[in-house]
């Protein structure tokens, strides 16, 4: 049960119970749905841009604690960031949850998102943690309207 505490950290449980920016964005410039066909998790990410900057970001959908908390904390982190910074954070986050980078503690670029480091011990849950991020990447690069984890 010890590993479970690493996965379900208090911050993650808090965001899964009370997700932040959990709403639609009427004036969104970009809207992309992320879908995990294996489990049926769905998340739609809304982004409104000002120039190259994320002016506002929100999400809707249904998923497990990990995917909901990840989407919630992603929206908190990205408000005000440039598209380039956001994509760089995605790279860092992906490396963290797949165990390629270790959590660095205070002062790291990821900051609070490092609570997701426990996901790397649960490979099957990596897709949960990255679902909203994949949707975000598609939204920023203008690639597709729907992204799938498969």
């Amino acid at each position: 049960m010890g590993d479970l505490r690493d996965l379900y950290q208090e911050t993650i449980l808090d965001h899964s119970r009370r997700p932040r920016n959990f709403r639609t964005l009427a004036d969104a410039d970009r809207k992309v749905e992320g879908f995990n066909p294996l489990c049926g998790d769905r998340v739609t990410v809304f982004v409104s841009l000002e120039g190259d900057q994320v002016k506002d970001i929100s999400f809707q959908g249904s998923g497990c604690a990990i995917s909901t908390a990840s989407a919630s904390m992603m929206t908190e982190k990205l408000k005000g960031k440039t598209a380039e910074e956001a994509l760089s954070l995605f790279e860092g986050f992906h490396a963290l949850v797949t165990g390629k980078h270790e959590a660095r503690g205070n002062g790291s670029e990821l900051g609070k998102l490092e609570v997701f480091s426990g996901v790397s011990e649960f490979p099957i849950r990596v897709k949960c943690a990255t679902l909203a991020w994949h949707a975000l990447k598609a939204a920023l690069t203008g690639a597709e309207q729907t992204v799938s984890t498969e």
Binding site: M1, D3, L4, L7, Y8, R17, L38, C39, G40, D41, G63, C64, A65, I66, T68, F122, I124, R125, C128
Partner: peptide, 27 residues
């Protein structure tokens, strides 16, 4: 209530209990 089946599946797995969580190919 309030807990997604996937999270149930992971928590049970940590106790050695294998169940299925998902839509069971019956969307």
């Amino acid at each position: 209530e309030g807990i997604h089946p996937h999270d149930l599946g992971t928590i049970l797995d940590q106790q050695g209990i294998a169940i299925r969580a998902g839509h069971h190919c019956t969307q």
